[in-house]
Simulated scan of single mutants.
Amino acid sequence: MRTHKILALAAVSAAIVASPAYAEKGDVLVRVRAIVVSPTERSSAVTPGFPGSKLGVSDAVMPEIDFTYMATKHIGAELILATTEHKIEGRGTLSGVPKIAKTWVLPPTLTLQYHFLPDTKIRPYVGAGVNYTIFYASKADSDLVRAVGPTNVHLSNSFGYVLQAGTDIDITKKVFLNLDIKYVGLKTNARLNTGGAINTARVDIDPLIFGIGLGFKL
């Protein structure tokens, strides 16, 4: 009897090990996440007009969608699409101007992922890739306009690297929970033109992006 139990357990274990991967070569996975973009910024002074000043960048919460193409059951390529709005804040000697500007950010991102346990219900992965960030609709805030007058704001676009880690957790055969975190190397040069008086600052935004959402196997 004991031998039969051992054989039955071995058969179940073999079936689990031999079960097909959740995603095979050629499959496409779609994830819809809510993300929190949290800059870990560092800033130079806004010069030459504001020595001792710094610029900060606010957090943002937005939806995100991404598409993953599985080249094998272990290797996937993920394209991430989202756009977020951020406030640029005055700090240091500019702390009396709490809001400098507003800007929208479009950061298309491509990562190459390795999925560790494709045959299990909990599937962790890591990834690395590239990001190109486009700043658009940048506009001086009323706080800055009241302090120094009408100002044109320009933020340079950025090309950088991305590091990623996350996990997929089965809910059904085609739906899964996704948890994800990314670090993006993102830098920009801010240019403030107030009636021909030019002030500039370099800001290393370098955000952490925390995501949670649902994924679907197409």
Score class of each variant (00 low, 15 high):
K5L: 15
L7R: 07
L7Y: 02
A8I: 09
L9N: 13
A14G: 07
A14T: 10
A15M: 12
I16H: 14
S19K: 15
P20Y: 14
P20V: 14
A21I: 06
L29F: 11
V32H: 04
I35N: 10
T40H: 15
E41D: 15
S44C: 08
A45Y: 11
A45I: 07
A45D: 15
V46M: 11
P48V: 03
K54W: 04
G56S: 09
G56T: 06
D59H: 10
A60E: 04
T68M: 14
T68S: 15
A71S: 07
H74C: 00
H74N: 12
G76T: 02
E78L: 13
I80D: 11
L81P: 03
L81N: 02
T84Q: 13
H86M: 07
K87D: 15
K87S: 15
I88H: 02
L94G: 09
V97C: 09
P98I: 08
K102C: 10
V105L: 09
T109S: 12
Y114P: 01
F116V: 13
T120E: 09
T120P: 00
R123V: 12
R123N: 13
Y125C: 04
V126C: 12
G129P: 09
D141T: 12
D141V: 04
S142V: 12
D143E: 06
V148Y: 07
T151E: 09
T151W: 01
T151R: 01
V153Q: 11
V153S: 09
L155W: 01
N157Y: 02
F159L: 13
F159W: 04
G160T: 04
Y161W: 12
V162R: 01
V162K: 00
Q164T: 08
A165T: 04
G166T: 08
G166R: 07
I169N: 10
K173V: 09
F176I: 02
K182E: 12
G185N: 11
G196F: 05
G196Y: 05
G196S: 05
P207H: 01
F210I: 09
G213D: 06
K217I: 00
